[in-house]
């Protein structure tokens, strides 16, 4: 009797064993994989400035960005909608880690070109690494004709920007970025204006739902263009993603969309109502 009982018990125990731990064996056998953290930001821009995100290999993105005039200009200017600065740009992924872009802004008829390289990636699992680093460099050329007596050479129309983008996706809904920035202007309007300006950018993304996120961005300058009484740029945006499009609605105290300009040439006082409504529309091919 005892023996039968024991046998039955053992058979039951062995059955229990085999059904339960098949998944445990799989867990045990699973190789430790290197996971590259993706989608730290939805777009290649946080709001005005670049995010660490690159276009992927052979992806072409067409971006139309738009900034209206200041909302506090009143009804006569239809709250800024009568004026606009528009930038068209083509951005292309030369590889998964290197993106090149060319753009043209109506403001001061500025052409800009940039390269962005993803140097280090945030990783979990094997070879874990806590944050991502990208390098960014751009050249902008102002092509608007100077007023008589203020003529400048082509070299004097050039601006250079270098940025180190350091970002971390804290969790699936929160990402942060710190962006040390250097801007060099070949031409200083008055002697008091610096040729070199250093700034530190802060950006964040908070996901509101799977396809909608709230973004914010602030650039603290350490030197200012005194001739125009430049302020620090502050911007908020909402990203809405639909398939191949990312649509961004933006509130910013800068009217421009190229780095040299919104970081160092912003004059609007955000809290005084000098806010520009804007859009970034992108389509990936």
């Amino acid at each position: 009797m005892k023996k039968i009982f024991l046998t039955v018990f053992l058979i039951l125990a062995s059955l229990q064993l085999s059904s339960q731990d098949l998944l445990d064996i799989l867990e045990l056998e699973a190789p430790v994989q290197e996971n590259i953290v993706s989608a730290t930001f939805k777009g290649t821009r946080i709001v005005n400035g670049h995010s660490i995100e690159n276009r992927k290999n052979k992806e072409l993105e067409f971006i139309i960005s738009h900034r209206f005039g200041r909302v506090n200009t009143g009804f006569e200017e239809l709250f800024g909608l009568d004026q606009a600065n528009i930038r068209f740009a083509l951005e292309y992924g030369l590889t998964d880690d290197l993106t090149a872009g060319l753009g043209r802004s109506s403001f001061e008829k500025t052409y800009d070109g940039y390269l962005k390289y993803s140097l280090l990636k945030q990783k979990t699992g094997a070879n874990a690494f806590p944050f991502a680093v990208s390098l960014f460099g751009s050249i902008a050329a102002k092509s608007q004709k100077a007023i008589a007596g203020n003529e400048r050479t082509f070299a004097e129309s050039l601006f250079y920007v270098g940025q180190v983008l350091i970002a971390k996706k804290v969790n699936s809904s929160l990402s942060i970025q710190v962006t040390p920035t250097y801007v060099h202007r070949n031409l200083a309007t008055i002697a008091a204006d610096p040729h070199d300006i250093f700034a530190l950018g802060f950006g964040t993304r908070v996901k509101l739902s799977k396809r909608v996120s709230l973004n914010a961005e602030y650039y603290q300058q350490f030197q200012n263009l005194t001739s125009i009484n430049a302020r620090n740029s502050l911007a908020f945006g909402v990203d809405i993603e639909t398939g191949g499009h990312v649509f961004q609605i933006i509130l910013s105290n800068a009217i421009t969309m190229v780095e040299k300009s919104f970081i160092t040439e912003t004059t609007g006082n955000f809290f005084g109502g000098d806010i520009h409504l804007g859009f970034n529309l992108s389509r990936t091919f």
């Binding site: 085999s18 098949l22 799989l26 867990e27 056998e29």
Partner: peptide, 15 residues
Amino acid sequence: VLSIVDANSGKMAIA
């Protein structure tokens, strides 16, 4: 894909 079959019980699991 990780998959395992127990030939005694005919049970299988996939992860």
